[in-house]
Design a protein around this nucleic acid. Structure first.
Lengths: 198, 198
DNA sequence: CTGATTTTTTAACATTTGTAAAAGGATTGC
DNA sequence: GCAATCCTTTTACAAATGTTAAAAAATCAG
């Protein structure tokens, strides 16, 4: 049993390192999380979660890269990216229980740890530190989102592009520009013009 | 003591009604919250919280109306509005502990219930249901913010204006258009043009 | 390697939004 | 009530971004 879990724990070490930055967990809580998690490998360009289904799993990106996307008037819009060592979930579905009109697509061959939300929320009753951990994680995500509103509300497209490059210098090498442009709230053509100016 | 708290409870009834929509609270937890809260009355146009200070209080709006604002290149930008029976706080400061570059201004004579965040966070250790309540409140606020990003990312200014009127039909009577325009991410002039077309 | 496909850029033109200034309305304080 | 101030609209012009189409560049599959 020890070996079994120590094996799993080493698979999941990067996730627990990430968790520990928010909230330390008791060994029992860590074990409880390990017991509900599973690994998922998805190749490039495949969907990890498809549009129309209700979000029932939170994923930790072990390596690779994914995006949340949806269609607006037939156009493919990227809502957000998730690089390795971060969480990804369609929260507007996760927290409302309604089907999501968004999907998660893998942009580089990727490995995820899937955390089933129903099981996780049950653990909240048994392990206070797990509820606290995810409270803090989503508070931080909330703050990021508020800051992004500010960016979309009153920064020019060029300012937003420059900021993105500062935040994620590797993004140009890893993500097609068409996804970057919709993430910034502009067209591909417009982004191409901005890049030509710089 | 009973009378004292029942008096306070009736003052705070609207807030607990609001809380109960997210999570029911034990009597002990309700009393604990009442004990840290205080009432604040602020007249129109005054600041409830000023720019530059760290957010240490979450407010419940009992009546009246307020907005979170900041300056970008000397222009006054409205980040959000809070009507009666809702919470308002500068979360990017509340959750990071950093000074906020945003302020809270009262747009109609208003009464607030102030919940000091340090005391509240201490209650999280004593009353699990209080932590759970605020977890759920901020999860819901997070979902609203994600939806607002979608609106800013790919709805036209006219679409955003029409949506706002649907969500808050009374807003035109209660909020100057200059604040509505910056909330929508456009100039006053642009909003005026959109209104002229309709 | 090569043809097919996808991605990115460029061009021309249309539309939206911003900027600055002025005028008209509404509100406020004395 | 009146002057002062603030809010909203209008106008004219400038700048940014969208739309469509086509060409160029990069990537992919066999």
């Amino acid at each position: 049993m020890l070996e079994f879990y120590s094996g799993k724990m080493s698979d999941f070490q990067s996730m627990f390192d990430y968790f520990n930055r928010f909230q330390s967990l008791s060994p029992a809580s860590q074990e409880a999380i390990v017991n509900i998690c599973s690994s998922v490998k998805i190749p490039k360009n495949k969907d990890l979660q498809s549009i129309g289904h209700t979000c029932k799993t939170i994923y930790f990106v072990q390596n690779g890269l994914a995006r949340i996307y949806y269609y607006k008037d037939g156009n493919d819009i990227t809502e957000s990216f998730a690089f390795e060592n971060s969480l990804i979930a369609r929260v507007e579905s996760l927290f409302t229980g309604k089907p999501s009109k968004k999907g998660i697509q893998v942009l580089e061959d990727a490995e995820f740890i899937g955390i089933p939300s129903t099981s996780l929320f049950e653990l909240y009753d048994l392990h206070h530190d797990i509820e606290r951990l995810f409270r803090k994680i989503f508070e931080a995500a909330y703050v990021d989102t508020v800051n992004r509103i500010e960016s979309l509300q009153f920064h020019s497209a060029e300012e937003r592009y420059r900021s993105l490059l500062l935040e994620s210098p590797s993004i140009l090498k890893r993500v097609p520009l068409k996804h970057i442009s919709s993430y910034l709230g502009i067209t591909q053509v417009s982004l191409s013009r901005i890049r030509a100016q710089i």
